[in-house]
Structure formats: structure tokens, C-alpha cells
Amino acid sequence: MVSELINANPVVYEKKERRVRSTPSCVDEYAAEPIDQLEIFDHLRDIKDPEHPYSLEELKVITEDAIEVDDSNSYVRVTFTPTVEHCSMATIIGLCLRVKLMRSLPSRYKVDIRIAPGSHATEAAVNKQLNDKERVAAALENPNLVDMVDECLAPSNGFAG
């Protein structure tokens, strides 16, 4: 694969404190809690970067604000920012995001994965690739790619299920 790291020395940011949701002592058993931004972010924040031992959150590849959710219309859009413009890992990261959401969200959801505008050299191509159902399906037939994705999605030490 790559003999050299694409971004050998990325900027690492501090992890945000996990927001603890306030749980009132007396909860309504039947009240619905819709899927929201934070919940999606919680799914994605611990995905590991393909080339570094850091999480996407630590590298600020994804942030909470970059996630749009519309629970009633079953729609999610995740916009991520690769660490460098020519990052060839962008597609892998995008694929990881998609697979993770496929596994975590109910099937009614439509998921859009995009690169933040202006943050990547071949933005349009990557976006097209990531949102093409057949190409994603094909990618997931490739055992090497699946291994790589699973590696990134493997739970980190602290949060092993």
C-alpha cells in the first residue's frame, strides 16, 4: 500500500468532554427520544484514522456541527474534513463513516457523506464515489478494504463493548 504516510505529522486536538445527557429521575416510559446530532457524533467520534492511532474526533476530521440530522425525514448528512488536501485516505474515511452509520442507524435512514467544500483536491470525485450505492457495495466486496474499514471501526480500548 502506501509506503509513506500522507500526512506524517497531523495536528491532534483535544477530545471534547463527553456530554452527559441529563436523565431526569422520573422518565416517561413511552416518550420518544429522537436521533440527534450528538447521538450520530457519538457513533462516529471513535472511528480511528486509517494511518494514525488517533480518532477522527481528535484530528477534527468530523465535528458535531458537521452533522445534519432530520429524524422525521430519516436523513443524515455528514460532512468531513480530511487533514490534508491531497489525502488519498479521504475515500477510506468516507467509507468508514458510511459503514459505521449503516451498522448503527435504522434502515429507514438515507445517509449522505460529503467532503467539506474546498478541503480536498478531488472533492467532486470523492463525493460521487462515496454516495454511489453500487460503488460502495463493490468496495465492500473487496476483502482488503473491508479489513481496513473494520480495523478503523474496531472499538478502542476504553470503550470496548
Binding site: 427520544e33 436521533i35 447521538e39 457519538d42 448503527s104 435504522p106 434502515s107
Partner: peptide, 15 residues
């Protein structure tokens, strides 16, 4: 269960 109304159930369902 991934589409459960309660968040903690959904999280458990993912695991």
C-alpha cells in the same frame, strides 16, 4: 431495535 424510541436501547442495539 436500532429504531427504538429510547436512545440507550439504540446504543445497546448497535453493540
Amino acid at each position: 431495535a436500532l429504531d427504538d424510541p429510547k436512545r440507550s436501547v439504540r446504543l445497546q442495539a448497535v453493540t
